[in-house]
Design a protein around this nucleic acid. Sequence first.
DNA 1: TAGATTGTTAATCGATTAACAATC
DNA 2: TAGATTGTTAATCGATTAACAATC
Lengths: 213, 213
Amino acid sequence: MSKEKVKKYPVPSVRRLPAYLRFLYELKAKDRAAVSCTHISDELRLDPTQVRKDLAITGIVGKPKIGYMVPELIDAIEKFLGWHDCSEAFLVGVGNLGGALLNYPDFKKHGLNIIAAFDIDNEKIGKTFQGKEIFPIEKFQNLASRMHVKIGIITVPPKHAQEIANIMIRADIKAIWNFAPATLNVPENVIVENVHLASSLAVLSSRLSELYK
Amino acid sequence: MSKEKVKKYPVPSVRRLPAYLRFLYELKAKDRAAVSCTHISDELRLDPTQVRKDLAITGIVGKPKIGYMVPELIDAIEKFLGWHDCSEAFLVGVGNLGGALLNYPDFKKHGLNIIAAFDIDNEKIGKTFQGKEIFPIEKFQNLASRMHVKIGIITVPPKHAQEIANIMIRADIKAIWNFAPATLNVPENVIVENVHLASSLAVLSSRLSELYK
DNA sequence: TAGATTGTTAATCGATTAACAATC
DNA sequence: TAGATTGTTAATCGATTAACAATC
């Protein structure tokens, strides 16, 4: 692991990459060989220069007058995101949302393989979701280090989110995908990516209430 | 509805408001009367000036040397977000995720009341989730206009997302909360708020792969 | 009063958008 | 060749952070 300053990619650009991919898969299905930024920007309603800059972070090089070769571009984005080889993840909290995530088959295409789940509820422990066994939370640390799992997904009630995060940190988890409505406190070498539905809802609500002013 | 230019609030600020609320509820439970920006910023790891500006959009006024009165501040944020009186919503697509959202009891505290759901699957139609009946999608337009529902939630597979969005638009839905991995095309007077797990995962993946460079 | 904290103006930073030269 | 499109530099815009006067 090099000590050189790692180049940081703009988060908004990274967030847009999956939308490009979705459109590119459609083009590929139609056997389109090449695509221009204008075409992409029209479809996704973005600025063409922005599209060019976003794609540039993946290292792709286009051809003037032609654009980008579709399969090459798909490959570059997938490689950039690390979606070619899956990372294995553990999920904690098999409630409504946790169960939904366990059952979601598409994460594998997105570089994420949830291989097991954990809970405190004896009703759930031992059961299997989509071939993924549910273990008691006590086994998290041991299994995580034995299987070298680096990603933890938190789908427990907010009251217990920090507690679970602490277990994950002790188990040397590198990245936490947090769905609990809670602000997690973690050491700075641990990555936290939050999915806060309340934040999304706040944007929706506030824009909606602007309408009626 | 006035034609004056509506003041736009910074989206990043709005996104942070729910986190403030969570912390404020904790303080209220501990009967803390007042709180300063510094206290909030320490807890949520934000810049104190940013906290002040974020709170200012709600119209709250603090007291020098004291800070903000906790119950007043909670009230101001909730009012700003329109979380005091719930908006009613219809959900389309009762799969894993849709079912999880239907079962999620906390949306009511966040100004959202999902009152019914829709699907195309005859197995599901007629069933009830948490007192919410599942109707055939054909009934969407009629029920939406009869009940003056203004929010639609899309949790169908991506292939059908645009089609459902079109139905919602025809039914005069004002805001769409979209969980389908698809870019929706809507007229500019319709609000779309996306929850794209793939985008969130992209940020997680790319940060994780930076670690191993 | 002195000092802590707000509210606001100014400076910085980063992302978006515009302009344009290079190139196939 | 002419023209479409890339890649890149410069300008703009908006959000974050710093500085500081007002105030209780």
